[in-house]
Design a protein around this nucleic acid. Sequence first.
DNA 1: TTGTACGCGTTATCAA
DNA 2: TTGATAACGCGTACAA
Lengths: 314, 314
Amino acid sequence: MTVSRALRQTGQVNPELTDKIRRVAEQLNYIPDQAAQALASSKSAFVGVLIPTLTNTVFADLLEAVHNILFPQGIQILIGNTHYSPEQEERLLRNFLSYRPSGLIVTGFDQYRETQKMINSSGIPCVHVMEISDDDSVYCVGLSNTEAAQGVVNYLLAKNRRRIAFIGAQNDSRTLQRLEGYRTALANNDLLDSALECNVPTQTSVGLGGELFREMMAHYSDVDAVFFSNDDLAQGAMFEALRLGIRIPDDVAIIGFNDIEQSAHSAPRMTTVHTPRTEIGTQAAKMLLNLMQGKTISPRSINVGFELIVRESA
Amino acid sequence: MTVSRALRQTGQVNPELTDKIRRVAEQLNYIPDQAAQALASSKSAFVGVLIPTLTNTVFADLLEAVHNILFPQGIQILIGNTHYSPEQEERLLRNFLSYRPSGLIVTGFDQYRETQKMINSSGIPCVHVMEISDDDSVYCVGLSNTEAAQGVVNYLLAKNRRRIAFIGAQNDSRTLQRLEGYRTALANNDLLDSALECNVPTQTSVGLGGELFREMMAHYSDVDAVFFSNDDLAQGAMFEALRLGIRIPDDVAIIGFNDIEQSAHSAPRMTTVHTPRTEIGTQAAKMLLNLMQGKTISPRSINVGFELIVRESA
DNA sequence: TTGTACGCGTTATCAA
DNA sequence: TTGATAACGCGTACAA
């Protein structure tokens, strides 16, 4: 018991004894067993993080930010890669729960009802990230993808673009929200043409962006702007444009989404929507930490906003 | 006890009783406690993975591959982000050990002696990834960065390039090995000029690649090829070349390293070394699984090789 | 400041 | 096939 106290620095042990215990522990390579700690204290040092993929800068940044806040607090992240599948998400969550995590960070809101129930009935604090909700019973840190998309389209309209296409992939709820914003903004100006909407379920990639752009321009050569649901697709389009001899932004304006590192350095530099995912991760982790300490949080929803970064491509 | 047996499917429980137990468990939302399981059975379902960063496709791919193999086996990954720092790596490992993981996957071999000792004395099976070693006492899955770099330079030489520069960043051991291979190949042909070596400790990025390339060309306009330690840097250089009016590959040949997705689609398409990181992750996870089952592995070292993908930039 | 008794939720072991 | 008992390694609560 004294050893336990000494090593945990509760400050109730004689300093000399503490030193001695430390030395011996070191010598024996003694490291306390977390499982036993968790069992005895009935609190774990885990936080489960559910993200759709690791191989997308957006979520890698998010995860890294969360990890950077949580690890110094002695908290281990349990990663769950949903692969954009609600089924897998549910399985992942069930698995998480067996570790009795002290907190949960979940991407978006489009879980199965079952999954939501499990979260709620578990009583484990949960922060949703990337999107925001007007449901005041949930905690979230994110931004309005719909508003951001509207901002993009309005910007293009102000620049006198009239044939504005949308190219998206992956079919996740954030892409859908961007599509919705795109539609709203165009409809408001009687400029919506559903033929110019291209939304495929395929996994997003640079290569795909190039392909879809080529097809779009082949069919609708009067398109004078394309809003892509993310920067990867947009980069692919810019590469393809170079090959096709389409001038960006003279012939076609291009706007991406997320503002990944390379977008600031491409040729031409890309106009895009900056999504503060590192901030989202940081804020979500901090909010969760507070929730885990039983603190009351208000507001429950943090809108970190977005910023249209105007560069050269539009 | 019967419940425990029924839920674990040991097959010693009456089928009807098993069904009944299942139903009740479901109804109660009962999920067995992993901490207690670990404590009682003295074996955990954890594997610790040590990687230098999450925000680099290479390691994200690696992690995703490992996760995809391990999760279906009921194994949770403990992630440790070393940020390329041996100090943090040691702290991370100590933290891992407190979870009594059943296995370890560690990037490279450049750990502190202390760290290596901890791994060895822990008795926990460990597979090193990304590099290979000729030390036959360690398990590893990777490739020879040195050989790959030599291959790159030899290819450029065969293409009659003579003023071949090297631009690298991050200063991690893999970059250093590539630099070494570059030097060896050039020295073999009496073409080594240390002025054309640019190796900065800064974190690698597309932006940095552009900067370093611009500086290089400003100082040494006779450079006719640049070998970059990774594709991000090389992409940045290609963008910058477009701005500077330097024609790729006519004026300068460019070769990257890793073959990230976009390299196949950039303009021009990039010649680079394909590193099979998904395969590395998969193989390492499988090898670890075998080690965890006490199987004997031979050989202990798997060289997954590399492939020079010739496209347009060189 | 140190020590004792007990319990955390599960599994190993042995008995029924 | 099922059940009872004792661990697993620690922390909580209380006593010394």
